[in-house]
Computed example of a mutant assay.
Amino acid sequence: MFTKLLHLEPKRRDAIINAALKEFASKGYDDASTNVIAKESGISKGLLFHYINTKKDLFLFLFDYCNQVLKEEYFDLINFNERDILERFRQTYLLKVDVIHKYPRIFEFIKVALLTETNEVKKRAGRKKKNGAIIRL
């Protein structure tokens, strides 16, 4: 569905993703503006909609994308065999810092996505939560 967005060169893709994360995290789904997302990512609104279909599709894409990033770049890298609690805390902290460095608003966005009251988004998040696909923060 979002192959155009995913196959962009990483700098442009990350600019769009981070602009969208910032806008949705700070304003929520309903008040977020695709105009702001396009402007902050340095592209036209028309080009943004060339990569995505609708604001809802972008939000739901980000929801899935963020869960995948957190799984691969955070949870999958935690050494659960480490018995020293302080060392494990240090390790998880450093992993979290790495994720935040790449996607500064990722954790805020996930919280907003899980708490949104917009029906079309809430249904999707609810199904994912029910199926255990949600990263619990």
Rank of each mutant, 00 (worst) to 15 (best):
T3L: 13
T3A: 09
T3I: 11
K4I: 00
L5P: 01
L5F: 04
L8G: 05
L8S: 08
L8C: 14
L8I: 15
K11V: 09
K11E: 11
R12F: 06
R12H: 09
R12T: 13
R13P: 09
R13C: 14
A15W: 07
I17W: 04
N18L: 05
A20P: 00
A20H: 01
L21Q: 08
K22W: 09
K22M: 10
E23C: 06
K27E: 07
K27V: 05
G28R: 10
D30P: 03
A32E: 03
A32S: 10
A32D: 02
T34K: 01
T34F: 05
A38N: 05
A38Y: 00
S41E: 03
I43Y: 01
I43P: 04
K45P: 08
G46S: 13
L47F: 14
L47T: 15
I52Q: 08
I52C: 11
T54N: 04
T54P: 01
D57Y: 00
L58N: 01
L60C: 06
L62Q: 03
F63S: 01
D64E: 09
Y65P: 04
N67P: 06
Q68D: 15
V69M: 14
E72C: 11
E73S: 11
Y74P: 14
D76R: 15
I78F: 03
F80W: 08
F80V: 13
N81T: 07
N81R: 08
R83E: 12
L86M: 10
L86K: 14
R88Y: 04
R88Q: 12
Q91D: 14
Y93W: 12
Y93D: 15
Y93I: 13
L95A: 09
K96C: 03
K96G: 05
V97G: 01
I100Q: 10
I100S: 05
H101P: 02
H101K: 14
H101M: 08
Y103I: 08
P104L: 08
I106N: 04
I106V: 11
E108P: 03
F109N: 07
K111S: 13
K111Y: 06
V112S: 11
V112H: 06
V112C: 09
A113I: 04
A113G: 02
L114Y: 09
L115H: 10
T116I: 06
T116G: 04
E117K: 12
T118D: 11
N119I: 08
N119L: 10
E120Y: 05
V121D: 06
R124P: 09
R124H: 15
G126Q: 14
R127H: 14
K128G: 07
K129F: 03
K129T: 12
K130V: 05
N131L: 15
I134F: 03
I135G: 10
I135P: 10
R136K: 13
